[in-house]
Design a protein around this nucleic acid. Sequence first.
DNA 1: AAAGATATAGACCATATGGTGTATAAACAA
DNA 2: TTGTTTATACACCATATGGTCTATATCTTT
Lengths: 236, 236
Amino acid sequence: MRREFKKKSKILLIDDNYEHLAGIRELLNLEGTFDVVGIATNVTVGLNLIKKYQPDIVLLDMNMPERDGLQGIIEISKLDLGTKVLALSGYDDADLIFRAMKIGAKGYVLKTMASAQLIYAIEEVLNGKIYLPLALSSRFFEYFQQTFREESAAKENAEEEENLLNYLTQREEEVLELLTQGITYKGVANKLFISETTVKTHVNNIFQKLQVNDRTQAVLYAINNGFLTKKVKMAV
Amino acid sequence: MRREFKKKSKILLIDDNYEHLAGIRELLNLEGTFDVVGIATNVTVGLNLIKKYQPDIVLLDMNMPERDGLQGIIEISKLDLGTKVLALSGYDDADLIFRAMKIGAKGYVLKTMASAQLIYAIEEVLNGKIYLPLALSSRFFEYFQQTFREESAAKENAEEEENLLNYLTQREEEVLELLTQGITYKGVANKLFISETTVKTHVNNIFQKLQVNDRTQAVLYAINNGFLTKKVKMAV
DNA sequence: AAAGATATAGACCATATGGTGTATAAACAA
DNA sequence: TTGTTTATACACCATATGGTCTATATCTTT
């Protein structure tokens, strides 16, 4: 009796176009190294099949009515079965690609692409890689950079204009930090082991420096000018 | 006299390794379709050459001391000459790739890659495309998805646990919105054409519903629970 | 018709907050 | 040594804020 050394990878297909669904199944069966454990024409059915058969990878059509592909990716990842999702779509819509990749698709291929490329994509994803064809990654990056361009432009402006927070002394920063937590003067005094009047003095100085005239505005200024993020800031 | 129909693309090279610099220059000169207008071993000199020669594309080494590659990309884009930047690096450091692409590099290639691939990358970028070799885009996406995984996990939690903001009435929301702008009760009263005591009543109800006991905490709750972003929220 | 939710508004009181001025000790810079 | 900055602290006072209760007019829902 022959032992099977290489277990076939379990694949599940979800696509509202049944013709296409059947076509891919044929293709994958012919290929021989895959085991198509199920097909579904909508996400709801697909999810049940995934729970039942626990496929290694799901080929998921993005352009479906009702619960669409993006939602599908989210639902599948919520199942927490480690199922990999390879997104399929008829169009190279940059926004769709971006969102799909962002929420965790392991790859994205067009239906118009050669079957060999689909097979390759599936294999790459099964090997734990993320696969996005050059043509699509190009679209992705345009969108990606455009998205961040505005963001960084805004951030730059914010950093260009002088930040009044820089004038605060060490102690004043500590006080302000506590204020941004909604703590009362008395509370601040206790936390810092100083008297309440001292806190008031610091607070007044903070108001002067930030050119505001009450707590709320000071807190808002701090939040809007990166006071909190300074300490946490990702190096992205 | 022969007319030149295809103008050679102007290229500038920046790399602190002179050997490598000279090597690439040779390669590009042999290729014949490029015109290497300058080479520099640091960003400062490079910037000056860019201003002088206005190259179409800059090959920029990422791993340089002092003003490094990332900073270089930023500086170049600040010149606002539309100069395209192709990042060069010895390593496939995911973080570096991610950051370079984020701040606008048009491509990223490894020094170890075949010269044909470098030429191809340059041509793609010159044609207005963004080029990231499959091996690198794969690294990029791993990092990209990881970065967003935590973010979306946090967001999901925030949305799962019931948001006390949902209990606010229309009017209370209006009042809260004004509070988040640091406006005083009297100010709110004037803006909404109601009496100050009415504002106080609303505010007290808001405190009850949000389970806080002062303005600052209410504002913080609102900010931390997407009160403001609800209206602006990008669909990213 | 009755009950409930909402927006309005007042009284009363306690406390928190903000404004201004003054003062002292320590650390530091000119 | 003198002047500056910083952290500390208090007095005094005005106003803003918050807590609780009551009350009315609409409007909706049952």
